[in-house]
């Protein structure tokens, strides 16, 4: 018996190791395919960085273009450029931006905190209030408070985010002068760490609220319909028949079951956390990753573009795994086997 069980245990360890190895191979293959695809996509756009720099310099000649193209490695044939790039990907080297005279890794790391702070704040704000408001609207379906919530969320959903941002600036910065209109932190003033934190938080309010507004609308509407769905299920009737209190029914029975679609959508949107929010970052002069990507695209700064795309793909894959894990916590019916 003992020998058999050891064998069985060994088999299971082996199976898990095999699955894990398979997963790692799959992961690497997916990343390489994505990297190749990114490379082709980025180079398919007309024009190159040398032309952009010349275009913005007001003067140009053959020598300048040749120098710039050599610097970017653009003087070599595409297959060689691609091979060089993939080799770098495998060795986890994101490359060097000649345009910015910095390594791509340092450029991304520099922008990532500001972006994560903004998007994570907006995301949590939207998710939390979306769930609460959606639930409220769902359980009061048909009443006036539901109508108000539904109309407001529809309006928010339809409002262009840059416009909302500008209106908030007009109100809270220009008219009332309560909040700073743009920037990440007050510049050129010595501050203690605590002052700096508060100051950043102060600058964060308007962009985070503007960005949250759209997501908030999505979550509210989704949560409302999900709650409505669950409310009509038999087990809720059972719970009511058992004489459970309304609050307990909502929290234990409705919410938990209504959360699944929200987690799915949130998981998908979490990828945008690293992508930043180009529009909001632009309106509020927030030094985030979204603007880095956008500028790099216009300037055809290939190393930066490819580097950011790669980092984002990896993070998105990781976030999808995390979403799977959360499913299992919320809904025990989703088994490890089924998810993997």
């Amino acid at each position: 018996m003992t020998a058999v069980s050891v064998d069985a245990k060994g088999d299971r360890v082996f199976a898990i190791a095999l699955a894990l190895a398979g997963w790692v191979i799959k992961f690497i293959a997916v990343v390489l395919v994505i990297a190749t695809f990114n490379f082709i996509l980025v180079h398919a756009a007309p024009g190159d960085p040398a032309q952009v720099i010349a275009g913005q310099s007001g003067a140009s000649d053959e020598k300048l273009l040749a120098q710039l193209r050599a610097e970017y490695g653009l003087d070599k044939p595409y297959p060689i450029q691609l091979a060089t790039y993939l080799k770098r990907v495998v060795t986890l080297d994101l490359g060097y931006s000649y345009r910015q005279q910095r390594t791509v890794a340092s450029l991304i790391l520099e922008r990532l905190p500001a972006t994560l702070l903004l998007t994570a704040t907006a995301f949590s704000l939207a998710l939390l209030s979306g769930i609460i408001l959606g639930t409220l609207a769902g359980v009061r379906a048909g009443k006036w408070s539901d109508t108000v919530l539904t109309v407001v969320s529809l309006l928010l959903y339809a409002t262009p985010v840059f416009w909302l941002g500008l209106m908030l600036v007009l109100l809270f910065s220009v008219q009332l002068d309560w909040l700073p209109a743009f920037g990440y932190v007050t510049i050129g003033v010595p501050m203690t760490a605590l002052q700096r934190m508060v100051d950043i938080g102060w600058h964060l309010i308007l962009p985070a609220v503007s960005l949250a507004a759209v997501y908030l609308a999505i979550y509210t509407r989704l949560m409302r319909s999900s709650v409505l769905d669950v409310t009509h299920q038999d087990f809720i009737k059972t719970a009511k028949a058992k004489g459970l209190k309304q609050g307990r029914i909502i929290i234990r029975h409705i919410l938990r079951n209504a959360m699944l679609p929200i987690v799915t959508v949130a998981g998908m949107q979490a990828g945008a956390l690293v992508g930043g929010a180009v529009v909001i970052e632009t309106v509020f002069a927030w030094p985030g990753l979204g603007r880095l990507i956008y500028d790099a695209l216009l300037q055809r700064d290939y190393p930066v573009l490819l580097g950011v795309f790669l980092v984002m793909s990896v993070i998105v894959i990781a976030l999808n795994l995390l979403t799977d894990a959360i499913y299992r916590v919320i809904d025990p019916r989703v088994s490890v086997r089924a998810a993997s």
């Binding site: 840059f162 600036v169 910065s173 743009f182 920037g183 970052e281 309106v283 509020f284 002069a285």
Partner: peptide, 15 residues
């Protein structure tokens, strides 16, 4: 200061 949006630049000047 790097202020990429035209409307924000106008606000910066106004304020």
């Amino acid at each position: 200061r790097v202020i990429p949006d035209g409307a924000s630049r106008a606000v910066a000047l106004e304020q």
